[in-house]
């Protein structure tokens, strides 16, 4: 169950970390879902064309970034309403993937393409002497081992670089950047492109792990990634914790499905409910503590 949760967490976390950059730059990126979907599709297509996992991931990354640039261009440069642009990007992904899929491969359904390699497990066969730990932490797909460096890198960039300071300042008050002659749009663009990369990569992990492209393979994970940003109080490590919680809740649902004979569809709602409860508990606790007014 925990093994499964960790596997589930990886794409969620990457998308969440990417979205975190956008969020901190003051742009609510509700198009993470669409970007993940595009990433997943592009990953399978490019993996099939090249026969390489790396190329697949690169394809996903590029697809997410392209959509992010579109988001930037319309939402920031043309001063559109961020929310509607986000919805539009999601629609665009939802509409153009089946369109391209049927134009290229003649099907809108499950895309099982030749030459897509299997995602290899990493650290297989290594033993640390703690079988339980081995079971949980080893043998995951590549993406899982990307997450810890990603969290550290995000924290480093956001907190310890001039770029991160400027990006965070953009989100809090873009006027302060203008006052010192910096262009806040540059930092919004950078943040959006990073969020596109994160979401695209996350999508590619989803698809490459399965080796096929399933319609709606992201299944709301883009939205949940967005929620992890808020639940994680807009900090990289917080996003990690939130993503892990979500993944565990999903793991519990899947496990419960097998054990308790509860219909799986109902359990799909469980992570959301748990999240609401966690939010309330957190806020209520803050209220009680005399730290805030």
């Amino acid at each position: 169950m925990i093994y499964y949760a960790i596997e589930v967490m990886a794409p969620l976390l990457l998308a969440g970390l990417g979205g975190l950059f956008a969020e901190l730059a003051g742009v609510l990126n509700i198009a993470l879902e669409g970007m993940m979907l595009a990433g997943a599709f592009a990953a399978i297509v490019s993996a099939s064309l090249t026969g390489s996992i790396a190329a697949g991931m690169l394809g996903g990354l590029i697809a997410g970034t392209v959509l992010a640039y579109l988001f930037y261009f319309v939402g920031i440069r043309m001063r559109a309403n961020i929310f509607i642009v986000g919805l539009a990007i999601n629609l665009l992904a939802a509409g153009s993937i089946p369109f391209l899929s049927s134009a290229m491969y003649g099907t809108k359904g499950v895309l099982r393409l030749p030459r897509v390699p299997r995602m290899p497990g990493f650290f297989v066969g290594i033993e640390t002497g703690f079988p339980l730990l081995d079971q949980i932490f080893l043998g995951h797909s590549f993406g899982v081992y990307l997450t810890v460096p990603a969290v550290l890198l995000a924290g480093l960039v956001l907190q310890r670089t001039p770029f991160g300071l400027r990006l965070r300042s953009t989100g809090k008050n873009p006027e302060t950047l203008r006052a010192v002659g910096l262009n806040p749009d540059r930092y919004r663009r950078a943040a959006l492109l990073i969020s596109g990369m994160g979401a695209g990569l996350a999508g590619s992990l989803l698809a490459l792990r399965l080796g096929v492209y399933l319609p709606n393979v992201s299944a709301g994970r883009g939205w949940i990634a967005l929620v992890t940003i808020y639940l994680g109080y807009k900090r990289p490590f917080g996003v990690l914790i939130a993503a892990l919680c979500f993944a565990l809740a999903e793991g519990v649902s899947v496990a419960a499905q097998g054990v308790l004979q509860i219909p799986g569809t109902i359990l799909l709602g469980l992570p959301y409910i748990l999240t609401v409860l966690a939010m309330i508990a957190y806020s209520a606790m803050r209220r009680v503590a005399p730290s805030d007014d």
Binding site: S169, T176, A179, L182
Partner: peptide
Amino acid sequence: PQFIPHHQVWENLFLGIEPRTRWGLL
């Protein structure tokens, strides 16, 4: 004067003229 309330004073004031370490970090 406009400040970003949640940022520290120095973060507000060194925006755009951030001193860097050898590795380009803040």
